[in-house]
Simulated assay, not measured.
Amino acid sequence: MSFVKVICMLLLLSLVSACSWFGGDKSIPDIPEQVIYDDAMSALDSQNFALAIEKFQLLEARYPFGRFSEQAQLELIYAYFRNNEPAAARAAADRFIRLHTNHDNIDYAYYLKGLTSFEEDRSFLARFLPLDETQRDPGAALDSFESFSILLNRYPDSEYAPDAQRRMQYLKNRLAIYEIHVASYYMKREAWIAAANRGRYVVENLQETPAVPDALAIMAEAYSKIGMHDLAENALDVLRLNFPDYVIRPFSPQRFDLLYTATFGLLGNIEPAVPARPVSPNRTTLDQPPAEEAAPRRSLLNRMTFGTLGSDGREEAEAQPAQ
């Protein structure tokens, strides 16, 4: 029995010594707070953001209540932002706002949070290709708009307020156009009430944007489709009063006869939409566009060459004087 105990003790000692041989008991040296902070700022200045994040995290872990702790948390938000880590940047900003509600630079935390979501909304491909970002999900744009809005409401005199206001106007236009895309989709699906609600949201909450006239036109057409003619006329009156040069066009789907569909537009005609209600002579109906716009007369050569040659009737329609 004693021999077994001796063997076990020798094995235990060998394992402990092996751990020491391979660096198992290696400890991180005690680095002063000033040195860690200086190293982190040097890495930040040299745009080595991954190293800067590592140093700031080490500083916060070693000296959570040190004299550089608050500034390190702010710099960490910026380092995450520049290192293309939007989720970590927003989390760091939220943590700083929660822990330091009365900090002198809390407006900077709100600005970085909004800027992170703003840049996240602009995809990599959208920066180099002509993609329509207004048709994508606006989740990041909404987060950015909310952060900038809090910054302007709570700290209107902040040095970051002017830039935040300019970005908010851009985001407001982007969100309004997105709502029009959704409303147009509902119109094509003949979901009139949903389309009208989207248009009303733009008119009530996203004023002074280029999408307002389209929203009013969608409201008028959708209300006309469901028989709410008073609301349709009110939307038309507002549209004509505020946007007299706006050209009304139908948002509901155009209907084609069977011959037109089967021959890919070579033969047949576009079936005119049936207006839901007659309108006054001096008012353009939303349900039926003018004949020149709805079904221009195409030449036979244009039809036989799938529109590559010949006249499609648009030149004649544009040459005619407006009535």
Rank of each mutant, 00 (worst) to 15 (best):
E70W: 00
E70C: 02
E70P: 00
E70T: 13
E70D: 05
E70S: 08
Q71K: 11
Q71G: 01
Q71F: 04
Q71N: 11
A72Y: 07
A72L: 02
A72H: 04
A72W: 05
Q73G: 11
Q73S: 15
Q73L: 13
Q73H: 11
Q73T: 03
Q73P: 02
Q73A: 09
L74N: 14
L74V: 13
L74Q: 13
L74S: 10
E75G: 05
E75K: 13
E75W: 06
E75V: 04
E75R: 12
E75L: 15
L76Y: 14
L76W: 10
I77Q: 02
Y78P: 00
Y78A: 02
Y78R: 06
Y78I: 12
Y78D: 01
Y78V: 07
Y78N: 08
A79V: 11
A79Y: 11
A79N: 04
A79C: 12
Y80A: 04
Y80S: 02
Y80Q: 01
Y80W: 05
Y80T: 05
F81R: 10
F81D: 09
F81N: 07
R82N: 07
R82H: 06
R82A: 05
R82Y: 02
R82E: 10
R82K: 15
N83W: 04
N83E: 03
N83C: 00
N84H: 01
N84W: 00
E85R: 15
E85W: 04
E85H: 02
P86N: 07
A87Y: 02
A87Q: 06
A88Y: 06
A88G: 00
A88P: 05
A88M: 15
A88C: 08
A89F: 04
A89M: 08
R90K: 13
R90E: 14
R90Y: 06
A91W: 01
A91I: 10
A92Y: 09
A93W: 02
A93V: 10
A93I: 03
D94F: 11
D94R: 15
D94G: 11
D94H: 11
D94L: 05
R95G: 06
R95I: 03
F96W: 14
F96V: 04
F96M: 13
F96A: 03
I97P: 01
I97F: 09
I97Q: 03
I97N: 04
R98W: 06
R98E: 15
R98L: 08
R98S: 08
L99M: 11
L99D: 10
L99F: 09
L99Q: 14
L99H: 08
L99W: 07
H100R: 07
H100T: 07
T101H: 03
T101R: 14
